[in-house]
Design a binder for these strands. Structure first.
Length: 600
RNA sequence: GGGGACGUAGCUCAGUUGGUUAGAGCGCUGCCCUGUCACGGCAGAGGUCGCGGGUUCGAGCCCCGUCGUCCCCGCCA
């Protein structure tokens, strides 16, 4: 292979095949950079080797060629230290043009990359680029490391169907019409959830699958309509078993990328995540939020027109550099504009300090924030942000007491991103320090849906509630307080995966369905087969599913899943290369008993 | 469904306050070149300024609509 040749291979006869990466024509002497999956090697073609020289003369970028020749140590001063193969070259004795190539719309050899529309349309050219080749080599290694780890831990890989019935993740399904059963549809799985639970009932006490999942929802940089999960389930697990397995395969996966993780990961409850980070997937590379409520005494609150009963939150974005007065004011204005009229305001700590009455408050805030960072004092280069609730509580706070934490948490992330170049906390060192993992536990079981005025399952309806909450009868009396045995694994503000201990008793499962407003008839209609299965000796079980695409994306240092999915879709769920989706032919529609309508 | 950014040569982009024939780099084509490696030199080709409409004596530039790509909210674990 081209990229593997080194000085010690000098003298060997080789046959190389690949693509012309670049051609440097000196007339009597032609250099070809030959590229294959392993890398690039320089081919020298002398005009004395007449036939080969004529072929090299005709060769153009992206032609596919075969070269027979001898590896030679380059002469003094001719090495190229920028290439792994820079100490050698291959002197061609014979050269074949295996295939020509049209001039490509963009060059896979270029460093500058074309716009994404063109890249996706000519995806095969884009995938030839060294960077993309590396991403998919990484993806393959990561997947293999995970397989090896799970198999070594006694997990069995079992496939589950793509053509199935709707599973209850709460996203829109992709439907597949049945030809044989007019008017009936299969659904593509949003996850193998029910099947893996049934596999536990079936006695496969450790299952895993690297499974494709499908969800018909709008896309994001980190969301594609089809994506791959590392899905696993265990019988008789304690939560700690599942954490250990997940940490184990993540460690194996990161090792495949040359990163040595330390386990166990940090643990925090959902409530702690919200209080400290304002979000259930905290990015712990930035300092946490700090409650300044106690420092803001009733007198100070009155003087500063701050609501008495609500929290005052502060956080530091370190090392953004000292802001000039105008820069500070414009930042304040920007943030206040971002708040809209949500009842929040910023305290200008720098200005407080110039006022004799409030100077002690400014000092106390700085001291509290410094203490939270574990430093003796903040520097003038650290950006202090203090958010206060204005007098008069907006209505939206009534049904979501966490709202203020979430809004301040969002601001923390916004400012963290805005000053990323300054604080450098997102910079890559290539070590485990770049990756801040956490387990978030004790998620709420139910979520209030303001639109439909109902309680929905926050995770999915097979998640077991805390035993205490069942005993206390909260399933009916106080749904908002019920905690689920559900957990997420979070990395640098990305949700990598989530799982739960499942319900394994039919009576509990039936009660949960009822508590979600489903009648027994409805539950039976949708999940009857599953409720039946629970009656035939179901072991306690639980599991987790992690997004393989997201893991690889983060390891590849990419910011979009499209960089690690070979044939991804655009933000409007279109495949620009094959041009899908397309209309069905009248005959296809007839066979499927379908008719299309145009909505006006 | 909503908000934002972008759309000019094959690619990356510039294009002033609306003013003559729309530019650059890379790529491409031809010729020259035996030590280049982002080779170099000379010459050349290449444009529906996303599309449609409007304003104007005149539109790449202003207005309206529309299409596409990306990012975000909603939605989605």
């Amino acid at each position: 292979m081209c990229g593997e040749l080194r000085a010690e291979d000098a003298g060997q006869d080789v046959v190389l095949m690949g693509w012309v990466n670049r051609r440097r024509d000196h007339g009597g002497l032609i250099f070809l950079d030959l590229r294959d999956r392993s890398g690039i090697a320089q081919i020298v073609v002398d005009e004395k080797v007449t036939a080969a020289h004529a072929k090299a003369d005709a060769a153009r970028p992206e032609f596919v060629i075969a070269v027979k020749g001898r590896v030679r140590r380059r002469g003094a001063g001719l090495d190229n230290p920028n290439m792994p193969t820079g100490e050698i070259e291959v002197v061609a004795s014979k050269l074949l043009l295996l295939n020509d190539a049209r001039t490509p719309p963009f060059s896979p050899a270029e460093d500058a990359i074309a716009n994404e529309e063109v890249r996706l349309k000519y995806r095969y050219l884009d995938l030839r680029r060294t960077e993309m080749q590396a991403n998919f080599a990484l993806r393959s290694r990561v997947a293999m490391a995970i397989r090896n780890y799970l198999v070594s831990e006694g997990f069995l890989e079992i496939e589950t169907p793509f053509m199935t019935r709707s599973t209850p993740e709460g996203a829109r399904d992709y439907l597949v019409p049945s030809r044989v059963h007019p008017g009936n549809f299969y659904a593509l799985p949003q996850s193998p959830q029910i099947f893996k639970q049934i596999l536990m009932v079936s006695g496969f006490d450790r299952y895993f699958q690297i499974a494709r999942c499908f969800r018909d929802e709008d896309l994001r940089a980190d969301r594609q309509p089809e994506f791959t999960q590392i899905d696993l389930e265990m019988s008789f697990p304690q939560m700690d078993n599942i954490f250990r397995v997940a940490e184990g395969f993540l460690t194996a996966a990161f090792a495949a990328a040359g990163i040595a993780l330390t386990t166990p990961f940090v643990h925090m409850t959902y409530d702690e995540a919200i209080k400290n980070y304002g979000i259930d997937k905290p990015d712990m590379r930035l300092p946490a939020m700090v409650s300044l409520s106690d420092i803001l005494t009733p007198e100070l609150r009155t003087a500063l027109k701050i609501e008495q009963s609500l929290p005052v939150l502060g956080f530091v974005i370190p090392n953004v550099g000292e802001l000039s007065g105008t820069a500070r004011k414009s930042l304040l204005g920007e943030v206040r504009a971002g708040f809209g009229d949500c009842g929040l305001d910023l305290l200008d700590v720098v200005r407080l300090r110039t006022n004799a009455t409030f100077a002690p408050l400014a000092d106390a805030i700085s001291a509290a924030l410094a203490a939270s960072l574990g430093v003796p004092a903040l520097s003038a280069a650290d950006l202090i942000t203090v958010v206060t609730p204005k007098l008069g509580t907006p209505a939206m706070w009534n049904y979501d007491p966490q709202w203020i934490y979430k809004r301040v948490g969002a601001l923390r992330l916004e400012l963290g991103a805005k000053f990323a170049d300054k604080h450098g906390l997102f910079a890559k060192t290539g070590t485990a320090a770049d990756f801040k993992f956490a387990w978030v536990t004790d998620f709420p079981m139910y979520e209030w849906n303001e639109e439909t005025k109902t309680w929905d399952a926050a995770h999915h309806p097979f998640t077991s509630p805390h035993e205490d909450d069942i005993q206390a009868g909260r399933l009916t009396t106080d749904k908002g307080a019920v905690r689920a045995l559900a957990y997420d694994v979070v990395l640098n503000g990305n949700e990598l995966g989530s799982g739960s201990i499942r319900i394994h008793r039919k009576d509990v499962q039936a009660e949960i369905f009822r508590s979600l407003g489903m009648t027994d008839e409805e539950a039976h209609e949708r999940f009857g087969f599953f409720l039946d299965a629970l009656e035939y000796g179901t072991p306690p079980h639980g599991g987790i599913a992690l997004g393989l695409d997201r893991i690889v994306m983060i390891l590849a240092g990419a910011t979009s899943l499209r960089e690690v999915i070979a044939f991804p879709k655009t933000a409007r769920a279109i495949d620009l290369m094959v041009d899908a989706p397309t209309p069905a032919t009248p005959q296809q529609l007839r066979e499927l008993h379908l008719r299309t309508v145009t909505r006006t």
